[in-house]
Design a protein around this nucleic acid. Structure first.
Length: 490
RNA sequence: GCCUGUAUAACUCAAUUGGUAGAGUGUCAGACUUCCAUUCUGAAGGUUGUCCGUUCAAAUCGGAUUGCAGGCUCCA
């Protein structure tokens, strides 16, 4: 990574803060690590990205419908999904080798060693004690057990250990205002992914919306992960928003649908006018146990190529797990005729293709792609600079700035009339302060694609100057065409 | 989590061996101004991230802590 690129992320962070896109969370209290708030322009941009995704998924595909599931879900959901078991192990680090171990693995390895030395009794005692301590979640006791048995790191060969810590990716909270006798009864999690809200509603949606396979369920919403290391601005946050679509297909057809969505999703990105060179696929070689195929769509951020979206062929893993844990059938009856047998395909648990994109990452993608510090040469040969956000017009926070050239001679009145006309259709910004050039630059900095200026000539022939953000070109168009022109571009 | 760096006004940065914190930009009010950061007048805005210590005196020295950035590690 070059110094220049490092600076670019810095500049984007500064710009995002200065112009009201992204603030550190609770900044007056020194912020909260890896949590950010979206400001006035940021939340408009974020909402526009979300809307654009939502529309392209649910409106442009007539076999995809949306839901909005709760963030709280029944705790068993996360047992079924595997999150409880996979993300809550006590871990310990060796300070010399910097190697991190799962505590149970570390102690079991020592037990194995004892067994090979023929010390069967000691092995049994050790394992028994470990089980007791693990069950009691006695981390101090476990640490002592490691020390007492002189367990060493296999790499550094030292016994210089950190304290034992529980790493749990999921945030826990208590459900219900009254504490139960058994504290565990009250635990609920903040969802670490939105996908499960779709899976548990699979049959509700399929039946009520009368969907036939293949069909998809889309959802946007917050998810929470207690990341060990959360950094790189809004790229990895502890609270983030996902835009997910689970596409349910007949087993055996998942390969072609995986291929379809892989292309379809990249095309969505390109439809925003972003260069294809900035994107690449990263096909997963090491697959999760349930996945058949998986890839990431990566974008060249200022911090290098990073995942912005994942496309996964998840087989019937999730629905089958929920079927097992809930003891409720998660099957679909397929009336289509199987040409091989001449009979309907019948009952099966559908396979799933998932497309999952991080909204906050998409936001950072748009900012990174849009941010430019431009040096412009003026007519007299002197140079000037401007900071401009080349945000696609469709998702720009403000679409049109309406600027009377002077704040007198009736110009503001005409401008305000135009504002009233356009306001119901798209986000506008009105300003009469300062010189016109300064106002243009301010709009460049927040990525407003169009500015119109009302001048004295407007009073004579009802034309205005429209000025384009990216080219800085100006042209005169009839006042009455302004709304139409902007609507055509967004 | 470990290591490194860093923190002064909204932003970018000054402040000599420790000696009462300044500038530019921006913001706000007003005047001027006929198309890309014009000019003029005035104003607001900082217990120097936080806490503790050394000192007659700390933005400056020391310790701790928090945030941010990077490297490693971890995770998806």
């Amino acid at each position: 990574m070059s110094i220049q690129q490092d600076n670019k992320l810095q500049q984007i962070i500064s710009h995002a803060k200065e112009y009201g896109f992204v603030f550190p969370s609770s900044e007056i209290y020194d912020g909260l690590s890896a949590v950010y708030d979206y400001g006035p322009y940021g939340c408009e941009l974020k909402k526009n990205i979300r809307d654009y995704w939502w529309k392209s998924m649910t409106q442009m595909h007539d076999n995809i419908v949306g839901i909005d599931a709760a963030i709280f879900m029944h705790p068993t959901t996360w047992k079924a999904s595997g999150h409880v078991d996979n993300f809550s192990d006590p871990m310990i680090d060796n300070k010399d080798s910097k190697k991190r171990y799962r505590v149970d693995h570390l102690i079991e390895a020592k037990a194995e060693e004892l067994a090979q030395e023929g010390k069967k009794d000691e092995e049994a005692t050790l394992l028994k004690k470990m089980d007791e301590l693990l069950a009691a979640e006695d981390f101090v006791g476990l640490k002592k057990l490691i020390d007492d048995n002189n367990i060493k790191c296999s790499i550094s060969g030292t016994a210089n250990w950190t304290d034992i810590r529980q790493f749990n990716l999921m945030f826990k909270t208590e459900f219900g205002a009254i504490a139960s006798d058994n504290a565990d009864d009250n635990i609920v999690y903040l969802r670490p992914e939105t996908a499960q809200g779709i899976f548990v509603n699979f049959l509700n949606v399929q039946k009520t919306a009368r969907m036939k396979i293949p069909f998809g369920i889309a959802q946007t919403g917050k998810a929470f992960r207690n990341e060990i290391v959360a950094r790189q601005f809004i790229f990895r946050m502890r609270e983030f928003e996902q835009m997910e679509m689970q596409f349910f297909v007949r087993p055996g057809t998942e390969g072609e649908w995986y291929k379809f969505w892989k292309e379809e999703r990249l095309n969505w990105h390109l439809s925003l006018g972003i260069s294809k060179d900035k994107y690449r696929y990263h096909d997963h070689v090491k697959l999760a146990h349930y996945a058949k195929e998986a890839c990431d769509i990566e974008f060249e951020f200022p911090i290098g190529f990073k995942e912005v979206e994942g496309i996964h062929s998840r087989s019937d893993f999730d629905l089958s797990q929920h079927q097992y844990y809930s003891k409720k059938k998660q099957q679909y009856f397929d009336n289509d005729i199987n040409p091989e047998t001449g009979k309907p395909y019948g009952n099966y648990v559908p396979y799933v293709i998932e497309t999952s994109i991080g909204l906050d990452r998409m936001f950072l993608l748009i900012l990174s792609n849009a941010y430019e510090e431009e040096v412009i040469t003026k007519e007299d040969g002197s140079t000037d600079s401007r900071v401009v956000l080349h945000i696609p017009a469709k998702i720009a926070p403000v679409k049109l700035a309406i600027l009377p050239l002077l704040k007198k001679d009736g110009l503001p009145e005409i401008a305000k009339q135009l504002l009233e006309e356009c306001k119901p259709h798209f986000k506008c910004f009105y300003e009469e302060k300062d010189a016109i050039g300064k106002r243009y630059r301010r709009q460049d900095a927040i990525g407003t694609p169009f500015c119109v200026t009302i001048d004295h000539q407007t009073k004579e022939d009802n034309t205005v100057t429209i000025r384009y953000r990216d080219s800085m070109k100006q042209e005169r168009i009839p006042l009455s065409k302004v709304k139409q022109l902007v609507l055509g571009e967004i």
